[in-house]
Computed example of a mutant assay.
Amino acid sequence: MSTRMLLQLLATLLVLPYLFPIVVMLQGALSGRGWGNFRAVLAIDAVPTFFKSSAIIAACTIVIVWALTMAAAFGFAKLPVRGKEVYFWLMVVALTLPEVVLLTPLFATTVHIGLYDTYGAVILPLAAVQLPFTVLLARNYVAGIPDQLFEAARVDGAGALAAFRYIVLPMTRPIAAAIVVLVLINSWNDYLLPLVMLQDPAKQTVTLLPQYFVSQFSNDQTKVLASAVITAVPEIVAYLCLQRLFERGLAAGALK
């Protein structure tokens, strides 16, 4: 058996554990009334509001994480910042803190500063939780940019801001695409923060949509699964659109 066939077999075996739940979810969503389950979910008046809230939270989180990640990666990788290695590893330590551990202090802080029941109460913690990992990826990618480019820019009179704009941003599009996809998935799928931080029904997100079909007296699993499939569509579309850049950026950010 050739090496290529062995790799294909290994890839298939690795995919199967992830593919099986998806197949089960689709089968459950189409059982009973079939496509009528999807129509029943989309007929709920709150669905457009849920998607709007999730889109606002995801878009704002992506912008914040992308801007801060690129700036921090440039500083950690290329700028002569005093003690930057200490700051970097202190930030990496934050990767060990799960979101649920931070929930109580985050809730108390948002109430104290008046952000409770606003989009900011979800967006800012979501961005903060994801920044350590995205900076870790982007720093490795930016470190792989040749120093000669920055030296040539300095000879031409360009400062750090110009180098960031004309060298770093154009050359980091693959890792930026990977960051966009990762942040979109994490912010779109987040359940805990919207549940705790948002009280107004008009600000609820799509992750709370399945609750419409689960109550004390009913538990319609077909519509729960149909709503799960519907909420996953934007993420799938985003990944397919950015697939090449995502894979290039993720691989380069992990290996450089």
Rank of each mutant, 00 (worst) to 15 (best):
R39L: 09
L198A: 07
V92G: 06
S227F: 02
V229I: 13
E85Y: 08
R165Q: 11
I62K: 06
E99M: 10
A238D: 02
A238V: 10
G120T: 06
V229K: 00
A67D: 05
A251L: 15
Q8H: 12
P194R: 05
L13P: 09
I145S: 07
W188I: 12
G120L: 11
L209S: 04
S31E: 10
T205W: 03
A251R: 15
V224R: 00
L95Q: 13
A43G: 02
R154Y: 08
T96S: 14
I230F: 02
L136H: 06
P146L: 14
T118S: 11
Q216G: 00
M70F: 04
G28Q: 06
L10N: 12
V81P: 03
V180Q: 01
V111Q: 15
V196F: 07
F88V: 01
L240F: 11
V101E: 04
E85A: 14
N37R: 02
D147M: 12
R4N: 13
L240Q: 12
L30Y: 00
K78A: 03
H112C: 05
S53Q: 09
A40V: 01
P170V: 12
Q130L: 15
L225I: 00
A73E: 04
I236E: 06
V15D: 04
D200C: 08
E99R: 10
F88E: 02
L97N: 11
L14P: 05
L124T: 03
S31Y: 06
S227C: 00
P210L: 05
D190L: 04
M5P: 03
P48S: 07
N186E: 09
S227W: 00
V142M: 01
K84R: 15
D117Q: 08
A71T: 15
A158G: 03
W66H: 10
T104V: 14
Q199P: 01
I56K: 11
N219D: 02
Q8G: 02
P98T: 09
L6F: 07
A55H: 00
E247K: 09
T110G: 00
V183Y: 03
L208D: 00
G157H: 06
G249D: 08
P174N: 12
D220A: 02
L209V: 01
P80H: 07
F74E: 00
V129T: 05
A153E: 09
G34D: 07
T222M: 01
A158K: 03
L195R: 08
F164Y: 15
L79N: 07
Q27K: 11
Q216A: 10
F20N: 04
G36D: 01
D190S: 09
V129H: 00
L184I: 12
W89N: 14
D147W: 09
P105T: 13
P194V: 09
V181A: 11
V129I: 13
F88Q: 04
R173A: 12
V81S: 00
F164P: 01
L90W: 13
L13F: 13
L19K: 14
